[in-house]
């Protein structure tokens, strides 16, 4: 009861927290509330129609499906990259390490036009794939996959790297002393320890990919029902002045992000619980 009146030891609590909440409300919370009020200012029928018309449903399937595939591929290559960067010493390691962050730093529109130039049928990679495998990348779902893989890689690598560095040497050495081959040590000792971070990294890459716009619109081709991603549909709705329709799709995407965020937290919570349990046993 009295706690509220206890003076704080460090100065500046009221000012810093007050400003934080004020600024957060101004830039994030109040604008966000518009998403809800605009959506629900329309009739339920209109909301339902907006989020379930065939073109929108096709975009969900595309956005979520391709994002998930890209995240999985990033999980595989990201694990290798993180392992190599954390464990091996080789020329160019620092350069490769810095390169991993490029998708964070490179503006998405730049990535978009660069990937399109590379993967269109007259680009160096695109022409090779088209001539030898009859595979079109740009302006197909495969192109979207390429862009989303580019975007997602750092999330997996940067989540895994510190965890690999933190692995205790003695556990691996103990496994080796007990007669495990390196492969057995990896699959039975190391991989289980890395799984939560790997899962988190994949979900983070997935979450980012679902909302990605800039790097995708150039390479996607944007054909309705075929290569149209959900964020693009929001823009289309806005251009048709269907504000409540755009808001409804936005809200649906927000909900999806929220579920992904929840999953990430669940993985972390599960992992904390598991390791806390280990500590008790020890």
């Amino acid at each position: 009861m009295f706690n509220r009146f206890t003076p704080r030891i460090m100065p500046g609590f009221g000012l810093s927290l007050g400003y934080t909440i004020f600024y957060l409300s101004l830039i994030v919370l109040i604008p966000f509330s518009a998403l809800f009020t605009k959506t629900f200012s329309a009739s339920w029928a209109h909301i339902w129609e907006s989020i379930s018309e065939p073109r929108v449903l096709a975009s969900y399937k595309l956005s979520f499906g391709v994002s998930f595939l890209a995240a999985l591929v990033n999980g595989f290559f990201g694990l290798i990259t993180a392992w190599v960067l954390a464990r091996y010493e080789f020329p160019g390691r620092r350069f490769v390490d810095a390169l991993v962050d490029l998708p964070f730093a490179l503006p998405t529109a730049v990535a978009g036009i660069a990937l399109t130039a590379l993967y269109s049928t007259n680009g160096p990679i695109g022409s090779f794939l088209f001539e030898h495998f009859n595979l079109r990348v740009a302006y197909t779902p495969l192109g979207i996959f390429v862009a989303l893989t580019f975007i997602g890689l750092p999330f997996v690598v940067r989540t895994l790297q510190p965890v690999i560095l933190d692995l205790h040497a003695d556990v691996e050495e103990a496994a080796a002393c007990l007669g495990a081959t390196r492969w057995q040590t990896f699959t039975r000792i190391i991989l289980p320890a890395l799984l939560p971070a790997l899962g988190t990294g994949i979900m983070l890459a997935f979450g980012r990919a679902v909302g990605e716009y800039g790097s995708v619109v150039f390479i996607a081709g944007n054909l309705p029902l075929k290569t149209e991603i959900t964020p693009l549909l929001i823009i289309t709705k806005l251009e048709q002045f269907d504000y409540s329709g755009a808001a409804a799709i936005g809200l649906a995407m927000l909900l999806a992000s929220f579920v992904i965020l929840l999953l990430v937290n669940l993985i972390q919570w599960w992992n904390d619980k598991r390791t806390a349990h280990d500590r008790e046993e020890n």
Binding site: A34, G207, G211, G250
Partner: peptide, 24 residues
């Protein structure tokens, strides 16, 4: 962290919904 989680398109959308011609 919220702005990192949502699509940048939504980041633009909310301001249109608030300040746009047909906005709140």
């Amino acid at each position: 962290d919220l702005p990192l989680w949502v699509s940048p398109v939504i980041g633009g959308l909310i301001y249109i919904l608030l300040f746009g011609r047909q906005g709140t």
